[in-house]
């Protein structure tokens, strides 16, 4: 599976390069390839009081590989877009109390568990997106650029799984009978929305004529799970910071 993504990534770079090399660049456009890391979490914008403690967190190694194009608009201003293969993930271990969950069976069956969980939750997220950003870039001077815009992303491969442990569930809610849980796994991967969109904001510094470094925020506005899914009863969103290095493709 990973090989296929590597291949896709290489294909991006290749087509990006071709594109960059094919076109006449006297229009002042700039074409670049970038490699970076995504750091962040899928998280509600405000933690509900049922999440009592974050015991441990690991951003995981989430690479981001992409191609970007900047088109001159007017003095100091550019329009930027591109295509990025974005891994967005995290590993988190947290303690929850009376956390409401409803787990529906697959294939539309009516069966499902509904209740509240108190105990330890461990979740691993590693989603792969194909991201299309669109932003305005302001370059007032020689070295610094600022970007603001949005992005749209297609989910290529979902992963949202984990386990609950050392706790108990209550059948139906806080008044239901208590069932002790030592360890139970969950996998909500196939419940994740196939797309995501949000805000894009970035700062970039050019390091040389070819290289530049950037940080940009991808602030998801779309819930990771559709509202109809209540396995995780908080509105999780992708909140990521991308740190990357870009290389400007040479002109022909």
């Amino acid at each position: 599976m990973n090989k296929r993504f590597l291949l896709a990534a290489l294909l991006f770079l290749f087509t990006g390069t071709m594109f960059a090399q094919d076109r006449k660049q006297d229009d002042g456009s700039i074409h670049r390839v970038s490699i970076g890391l995504n750091l962040g979490a899928v998280t509600p914008t405000s933690l509900p009081n049922t999440i009592r403690r974050i015991d441990a967190y690991n951003p995981l190694l989430c690479p981001s590989i992409g191609y970007s194009a900047l088109f001159a608009a007017k003095q100091h201003w550019w329009i930027g877009t591109g295509l990025l293969l974005d891994y967005k993930g995290m590993w988190v271990k947290d303690s929850v109390a009376y956390f409401h969950t409803m787990i529906q069976g697959n294939n539309g069956s009516a069966s499902g568990f509904e209740g509240s969980f108190t105990g330890t939750n461990t979740t691993t997220v590693r989603n792969v997106y194909l991201t299309l950003p669109l932003y305005a870039q302001w370059t007032p001077g020689k070295n610094w650029s600022f970007q603001i815009g949005g992005y749209f992303a297609f989910l290529l491969r979902p992963k949202f799984e984990g386990h609950v442990s050392n706790g108990y569930i209550r059948n139906g809610g806080p008044l239901g009978e208590k069932v002790i849980v030592d360890y139970a796994e969950f996998d909500f991967s196939n419940k994740i929305r196939r797309y995501d969109y949000g805000l894009h904001a970035g700062i970039e510094k050019s390091l040389s004529s070819k290289w530049s470094a950037s940080i940009h925020w991808q602030w998801g506005l779309c819930r990771l799970f559709p509202a109809s899914f209540s396995g995780v009863d908080v509105p999780l969103k992708n909140m990521y910071v991308n740190v990357s290095l870009s290389y400007r493709l040479p002109r022909l």
């Binding site: 998280t43 009081n49 974050i54 967190y57 109390a97 910071v241």
Partner: peptide
């Protein structure tokens, strides 16, 4: 990031 997450833990 971790700080921003943990700092908003609410009252039990």
């Amino acid at each position: 990031l971790v700080c921003s997450l943990t700092s908003c833990i609410k009252k039990a």
